[in-house]
Write a protein that binds this DNA or RNA. Sequence first.
DNA 1: TATGCTATTATGTATGCACATAATAATTTC
DNA 2: GAAATTATTATGTGCATACATAATAGCATA
Lengths: 230, 230
Amino acid sequence: MTVISHQSIRQALLGRIQSGEWALGSRIPGETDLATEYGCARTTVNRALQALADEGLVVRKRKGGTRVCQTPVRQAKFEIPILREQVETAGSNYSHRLVCNKLKRPPPPVRSRLHIPAGGKAAHMQTIHYADSSPFAYEERWVNTQAVPEILTTPLGEISVNEWLVKMVPFSSGDVVFSAVSADEKIADALEIEVGAAIFVIDRTTWLDDAFITTMTLYYKEGYKLYSQL
Amino acid sequence: MTVISHQSIRQALLGRIQSGEWALGSRIPGETDLATEYGCARTTVNRALQALADEGLVVRKRKGGTRVCQTPVRQAKFEIPILREQVETAGSNYSHRLVCNKLKRPPPPVRSRLHIPAGGKAAHMQTIHYADSSPFAYEERWVNTQAVPEILTTPLGEISVNEWLVKMVPFSSGDVVFSAVSADEKIADALEIEVGAAIFVIDRTTWLDDAFITTMTLYYKEGYKLYSQL
DNA sequence: TATGCTATTATGTATGCACATAATAATTTC
DNA sequence: GAAATTATTATGTGCATACATAATAGCATA
């Protein structure tokens, strides 16, 4: 026993949960009991239990005590890929081409997602991302120029919209939707594949506080996979 | 200000990061300074900063101090859906049909994923999941009978393999891979759709400590979307 | 019996303190 | 002057304590 700590206690508790010693939904000993059992302060046990609670493995209630979670919600975490990194870690050369960049009226679904007033305009961009010289992903994006007016005066040749936004509003919130679609002609054309191929799609909307910044759809080339951990 | 706490401090610090007051990669004041500024103990600031570090917003180093993360890794979290719940929360009736349940030699990729010795066998199952009476998802699964021999003597009529496993080894680890494929004949047949339709696929392997339990591929009906949050 | 107060219990949170640890800066030693 | 040693600094971790808070159990009163 080199180190004693909240981590090792967390580990020990996890083991007892995984082994089934404490059944699903059953109440586990109180903090004070565990503290004496492991020979440490209650604070330390508290930290360990809090960690397990954060991970969704146990549920804690005042007075009610701590219980093993009834329905173990399997939460997966993954990193939203940054295209350039993704390509470069694969050992290829990243580049991109801005196919279109116009200010125009967004279609209703986009308008409502970005909270743009009726009749208002937004910047519309289409980008093809390349790994070496073959297309890797096709991006369709709308940017709310109310929220980030600087986008209009930025030369988007060298730096991609994506990277520009990451620099400008790095800590925004957002939601992400994954799905699969068949490539229509536009997508097939951009990715240089057959119409009808199965395409992995990431749909993403980003905001900062009350300002809706951008919504984007990313179509990956066939065969793309997204890895994640439980 | 009703409550002072690590949470509100975390919030305040988050605001200063988001607003750009502290630039990307820049060093932020030390714990002691922040403690005096917010009028609380260093421990409390520590908790707030630890939380931000867990979320990947800041990087902390001994002596080096705390810095705003240079490349804000956008981590998304989502809950692995449980089919029954998914169907039932949509207001439909869940049911499933076990199409196949045989003990046989798995193909090499499955064999290596489940760490089954050469020539060894595993249980192979195919299940169709229904929402009301129309197919919703098609599941292909291999179970390592070495790890969970009980599966062989369980009547898998009423309870699905999925639910049985959740009950038996609820807190296992695993990895998940998402992708898109075109429906081949087998899948199209099971889901009662056209061959070639774009299908969202979840591939999942589950283990507990050293025991590899099961690997599963889940093919969702067209139009399925997976939601997630940043 | 119904209602309202009080005690108990288990977790939640904050504090002050002490010491550990890692990285760097300053100083000493050869 | 280079290398080894020591000091300093900022975070990491643990402990004892105190009080807050939520939910329940028990009791008491009308």
